[in-house]
């Protein structure tokens, strides 16, 4: 564990609390993509099956359980109690293409041919693009509530710190994970536009609104 990875994981954790806070405070999930949230649930369930086969640390297991449980809870909140506030008409990205694409990539370039590693690879490819429905929705509406943009920023910062974690691990441990690196780099690049708008607008106390 290094400082980049620890802060990244904590930011990932924080992003989920920010999202739950937004839903609770505004009593609404308006502007939040249910498709992105459902994709994250699929990502966590398919990646963390090793909970049953491999023990790394208490930290590792607790985080995995939290990510699975919290993503299931968020999907439930948006699906049932907060359904009337869900902006379905702007959440129109075709998420099924992302699932099919990630599945094809997982089968074409799996980490190994063990079923758990194919699912792991699928989850890595899917996580790389899972934010797209959310970014697409923000582009369609042209703006987002400030707290929603904080949520997306925390997620993007978590990914950016993972890149630094990999550089650090490569030089200190000789650690290599090409699949995670390529997918992680793609994932971080997807946030580039968002980062720019967030830093130039939201940080100055203005709405996340497209120029």
């Amino acid at each position: 564990m290094n400082i980049f990875r620890l802060v990244a994981d904590l930011l990932h954790l924080a992003s989920i609390f920010i999202l739950l806070l937004k839903i609770q405070q505004t009593k609404s999930c308006a502007g939040v993509s249910l498709k992105t949230q459902a994709l994250y649930f699929v990502v966590f369930v398919t990646r963390y099956l090793d909970l049953f086969t491999h023990f790394y640390s208490v930290y590792n297991s607790l985080m995995k359980l939290f990510f699975i449980a919290s993503s299931a809870y968020i999907v439930y909140l948006m699906w049932k109690p907060y359904r009337p506030t869900y902006s379905a008409s702007t959440d129109t990205f075709r998420a099924e293409f992302l699932i099919v694409g990630a599945a094809l990539l997982g089968l074409a370039f799996p980490d190994s041919w063990h079923i758990l590693d194919i699912l792991w690879s699928f989850s890595i490819y899917l996580e790389a693009v899972a934010i797209l429905p959310q970014l697409f929705q923000m582009t369609r509406t042209g703006e987002a509530e400030t707290i929603t943009s904080h949520y997306v920023f925390a997620l993007g910062a978590y990914r950016a710190l993972y890149l630094m974690n990999w550089i650090y691990r490569y030089y200190t441990e000789g650690y290599m994970d090409v699949i995670a690196w390529v997918a992680g780099a793609v994932q971080t690049i997807l946030y580039a536009d968002f980062f720019y708008i967030y830093l130039t607008r939201v940080m100055r106390g203005r709405l996340f609104s497209l120029p």
């Binding site: 994981d9 790394y56 974690n165 994970d177 995670a180």
Partner: peptide, 10 residues
């Protein structure tokens, strides 16, 4: 199966 890659990251 001991040659399977280890994924210690979240």
């Amino acid at each position: 199966s001991s040659s399977r890659p280890v994924h210690d990251e979240l």
